[in-house]
C-alpha cells in the first residue's frame, strides 16, 4: 500500500519551481500576445492549447503530480475524460439540432425553436 512512500520525502529544488514559475509567466504573455492577432477560427484553439500547457505545468510541478503518479494521476486525468464526455455528448445534441429544425421548418413553417428571442425583454 505504501508503494509511493518516496513522495513524502521529495524535496524539489527551488530552481525547478522558479523555472516553472517563469514558464507560466512567459506563457501568460504569449497568450495575451496571441490574442492581439486574429487567427480566425484558430483563436480559441490557440488560447486553449496555451491554457492547457499552463495547467499541465501547474499540475505536474506545483501540485507534484510528477512525483506522485499512481491513483491520484489516474483519478485526475480520468475526470478530464468524463468532462470531455460531458461536452462531447452535449454537443452531439446542440450542434446537430439545425438539421431537424430546417426540415421541420420546411414542412411546418416553424421558426428556429432554440432561439426564440422575444425582443427587449429586459430594460
Amino acid at each position: 500500500m505504501a508503494k509511493h512512500s518516496e513522495s513524502h520525502h521529495v524535496i524539489v529544488p527551488v530552481k525547478t519551481f522558479v523555472a516553472t514559475f517563469s514558464a507560466l509567466l512567459v506563457l501568460t504573455i504569449l497568450t495575451v500576445v496571441a490574442s492581439r492577432f486574429d487567427f480566425g477560427s484558430m483563436n480559441l484553439s490557440i488560447a486553449l492549447l496555451i491554457a492547457f500547457c499552463k495547467a499541465s505545468l501547474v499540475v505536474w510541478i506545483f501540485m507534484g503530480m510528477k512525483w506522485d503518479r499512481g491513483f491520484n494521476f489516474v483519478a485526475f486525468v480520468g475526470s478530464i475524460l468524463f468532462l470531455i464526455i460531458f461536452i462531447g455528448f452535449t454537443f452531439s445534441d446542440i450542434a446537430f439540432r439545425d438539421y431537424r429544425d430546417k426540415v421541420e421548418g420546411e414542412y411546418f413553417g416553424l421558426a428556429h425553436p432554440v432561439k426564440p428571442i422575444s425582443g427587449a425583454h429586459h430594460e
Binding site: 505504501a2 509511493h4 512512500s5 491520484n72 480520468g78 475526470s79 461536452i87
Partner: peptide, 29 residues
C-alpha cells in the same frame, strides 16, 4: 503509520479536486 495518514489525506484531496473539476467543468460546458 504517519506515511499511511499522509498518503490517505493526499488521495482524499485529489479525489476532492476531481469533484471540483467537474463542478467548474459543467459551467465550462
Amino acid at each position: 503509520t504517519a506515511e499511511q495518514e499522509f498518503s490517505t489525506a493526499k488521495l482524499g484531496m485529489w479525489v476532492f479536486l476531481v469533484q471540483e473539476l467537474l463542478f467548474f467543468g459543467a459551467l465550462f460546458v
